[in-house]
Design a protein around this nucleic acid. Structure first.
Lengths: 360, 360
DNA sequence: ATGAAAGCGCTAACAT
DNA sequence: ATGTTAGCGCTTTCAT
C-alpha cells in the first residue's frame, strides 16, 4: 500500500480513501492512484483492514454438517445471500455434538466473526447459547428453536404437518401413524402438534399408539415402522417426521415387500433430493431452504449493522410447500404439483385437480 | 491482552508465550497468567494474530455449490480434516461459472487464506489457475483436473468405469450404452476411456453410436436416453457417467415404463444418497469422498508448511468402490456389497458371491 | 483536497 | 525466565 502511495505520489491515507470511497478525492489524483494499483497488482489486505475497523465481514456458520438435513442447501444459500452484501462465510462443523459445537463457536469468536448463524445441535444448548449472549455476537438460529432470546427462522411446522395428515385422511385413511423425531427438539413437538391438528380437522381421534419415535434418524425409524407393522391393526398410512426417517420408513416397507401406496400410503416432512424418481415418488412438505437462508442472513445483517437493534428477538416461520406426488396414493400424476402451505392452514387442503378418494 | 498482563503482573509478551507455548514460562507465572485469562474471559484475537504472523490458518474452498455433486460431503470433509490441524474453512461458491469463480478467488486472496482447495468450474479455467500461480498461493485441485502445474486429487476413473462395464458384460449384455458427461471435462474423457477399456476386456467392440452425451446433467441425459431407446436396436444396459445423469436416466426409463433391470440394466458412476432405497437399488461406483478431502488437505498443509516444496505437482488418484446392488440385474441381494476398485483394475472383476449370468 | 500519525491487538526479535 | 518494543497493513482523527 505504501508502494502504491509512493508510486502515485500521494499519502497512504489517500490511497485508502480511493479504495474505500470514504472521502472525496480529486479526479486526477484518483486516476493516478488507480493506475498505481493496477501497475503494482496491489491486493488490499482484509486482515489488516479487519483489525483496524474491528469488523471482519465474516459470518460464522455453525452446523451439523453430516447429520443436518439441509446442510448443503442452507450453507450454500447463506453464502450466496451473504456475499450479495459483501460478507463471506466461515464454516464450523458441530457434528451435532454440543461439545464440538461449543468448540466451533469458540473458534469462530476468536476469529471475530461479525455474526453467527447457528443450527443448534441436539442436546443441551444452553451453554452455547449463553455464551453467544454474553459475548454479544449477533446471532440467528436456524431450523431448531428453543430459546426465545434469539432471532430464529425456520419452516412453519404445524400447519404443514397437518396438511399432510388431512390429505391422507381425505383419501379415506383413518389409521394414520406418525414417525416422530427426537423428543427434545422443537421441530418434533411442532410436527406432532400438527399431526394431531390434522387428525382433528379431519374428524379423527389422535391415538397415542399411532405415534412412534424414529428419533430423527433412519435406523430407529426403520425399527419403529417394523414395530408398527407387527401389530394386529397396522396403520394404513404413515407420516414421516423428517427426511432421514423417511428413508428408514422406506427401508422397512421395502424389506417387508409392502407396496406403497397400495398396501400403505406414505407422506413425509422434508423433500428429498431426487424424490421424484423414487418408486413411487414421494409426497412431501418441502422446506423453503433458500428463503430461510436469505431471511436469516437479512435479519443477521440488520442486527450487525445496528439497525433494528431495539425490537426484541424475532421468530420467523416460513411456509413450506406441499409437493404432491404418488406415495400418498392419489391417482398417478403426470408430474408433481406444488403449492404453499400458508401459516394459517389455508391453501393446503385442496390439491390441484383434487385427490382421488380411495377408501381403505 | 494488556488487561490480562496487568492482572498477572507480567508483560504482554509473556502472556503471548503462555498462550502459544512458544517459549518456556515458569510454572507459577504461567499459573498466574492462566488465572488472569480465566478471570477476564479473555479471548485471543486471531485477526491481530494473523496480521502479526502473516498467516491466517484459513483454507479457502471454492466450489460450485449447487452443481457439483459432492459439495456437501467434500466441504464437510475438508473442514473436518483441516480442523484437526488447526485450520478453518472459508467458503466461496463459484456457481460453476468462471467469472464468479474468479471473483470468489479474489475475495479469498484478499482475505489472505493460507491455501486454496478448488473444484474448478466448467469453462476456461486458465485465468483463475494462472492467477493462483502468480499469486503463489498453495493450491490443490479437486475432482476435475486439467492442469499439471497443480496438485490434484480425485477418484480413479478409468478402471472404475471399466469395472462397471465388465460387470454388465459378464451378465451377458453386449449392447452396453454410455451416457457420458460434458466433453470438456477430464472426468468425462477418463470415464469414456474406461468404458472402452471395459468393453475391450470383455471381448466387445466399442460402437460410437452407443456413447451419447448427457452433458453432465439430468435433463440432457434424459433426452439422450430417450433417443437411445427410440432406436431399432436399443441397448440392453446403460452406464451413466455421473449422479445427475443417472437421475435423468431413471426419469427417462420411468416415463417409458421400462423396468430396471428386467428390460434394461443400469450401472452408474457416483453413488447417490439413499441409492439403496431406489427401486431397484442402484449398482454404482462410489467415490471415496472423505479420503479425497483428507488427502487434499494433507497435501495442502504440506505445501503450506513449506515441506515438500521441491517435488513437482502431484496427481493423486484414489480408487473408487464398486457398490453392488440390484440395478445391474444380478440376483436380488440381501444387502449391498462393496469392494474397492484398485487402480490397476484388479479386484474389480469378481463380485463377492459372483454375479448371476443372465443372457439377453 | 490531502497528509501525518496514532492506533487496532498481537508476535517476535532483541535486551536484560 | 521475563520485559521492551518495533512492526504487521490498514483506517481514521486531526491538521493543514
Amino acid at each position: 500500500m505504501a508502494d502504491v502511495a509512493a508510486r502515485a505520489r500521494v499519502s497512504v491515507s489517500t490511497v485508502s480513501h480511493v479504495i474505500n470511497g470514504t472521502r472525496p478525492v480529486n479526479a486526477p489524483t484518483r486516476a493516478r492512484v488507480e493506475r498505481a494499483i493496477e501497475e503494482t497488482g496491489y491486493l488490499p489486505n482484509r486482515v489488516a483492514r479487519s483489525l483496524a475497523t474491528r469488523g471482519t465481514q465474516l459470518i460464522g456458520i455453525v452446523m451439523s454438517a453430516l447429520t443436518n438435513r439441509f446442510f448443503v442447501a442452507t450453507v450454500a444459500a447463506i453464502d450466496r445471500a451473504g456475499r450479495r452484501h459483501g460478507y463471506n462465510s466461515v464454516l464450523a462443523d458441530s457434528r451435532d455434538e454440543v461439545s464440538c459445537e461449543a468448540e466451533a463457536l469458540h473458534i469462530l469468536l476468536s476469529r471475530r466473526v461479525d455474526g453467527v448463524i447457528l443450527a443448534p445441535a441436539a442436546g443441551d444448548r444452553r451453554p452455547v447459547l449463553d455464551r453467544l449472549l454474553t459475548e454479544g455476537v449477533p446471532t440467528v438460529l436456524i431450523d431448531r428453536f428453543e430459546d426465545n432470546r434469539f432471532d430464529q427462522v425456520g419452516v412453519e411446522n404445524v400447519q404443514a404437518t397437518a396438511s399432510l395428515v388431512e390429505h391422507l385422511a381425505g383419501l379415506g385413511h383413518s389409521r394414520i401413524a406418525l414417525v416422530s423425531g427426537l423428543s427434545g427438539l422443537s421441530t418434533t413437538q411442532e410436527r406432532v402438534a400438527g399431526y394431531k391438528l390434522g387428525l382433528e380437522r379431519s374428524g379423527l381421534v389422535p391415538r397415542r399408539e399411532l405415534v412412534v419415535s424414529g428419533k430423527s434418524a433412519a435406523e430407529p425409524a426403520e425399527r419403529a415402522v417394523n414395530e408398527l407393522l407387527d401389530r394386529r391393526h397396522p396403520p394404513t398410512a404413515i407420516v414421516s417426521g423428517n427426511n432421514y426417517m423417511t428413508i428408514g420408513v422406506l427401508r422397512a416397507l421395502r424389506a417387508r415387500r409392502a407396496r406403497v401406496p397400495d398396501d400403505i400410503a406414505v407422506a413425509a416432512f422434508d423433500d428429498i433430493e431426487f424424490a421424484d424418481v423414487f418408486q413411487p415418488s414421494l409426497t412431501v412438505i418441502a422446506q423453503p431452504i433458500d428463503k430461510i437462508a436469505a431471511t436469516a442472513v437479512d435479519l443477521l445483517i440488520k442486527r450487525m449493522s445496528g439497525v433494528a437493534t431495539d425490537c426484541g428477538p424475532q421468530c420467523i416461520r416460513l411456509p413450506g410447500t406441499f409437493v404432491h406426488r404418488e406415495s400418498c396414493g392419489c391417482e398417478p400424476l403426470q408430474s408433481s404439483k406444488r403449492w404453499p402451505v400458508s401459516p394459517d392452514g389455508r391453501g393446503s387442503k385442496v390439491p390441484i385437480g383434487g385427490p382421488a378418494r380411495r377408501p381403505t
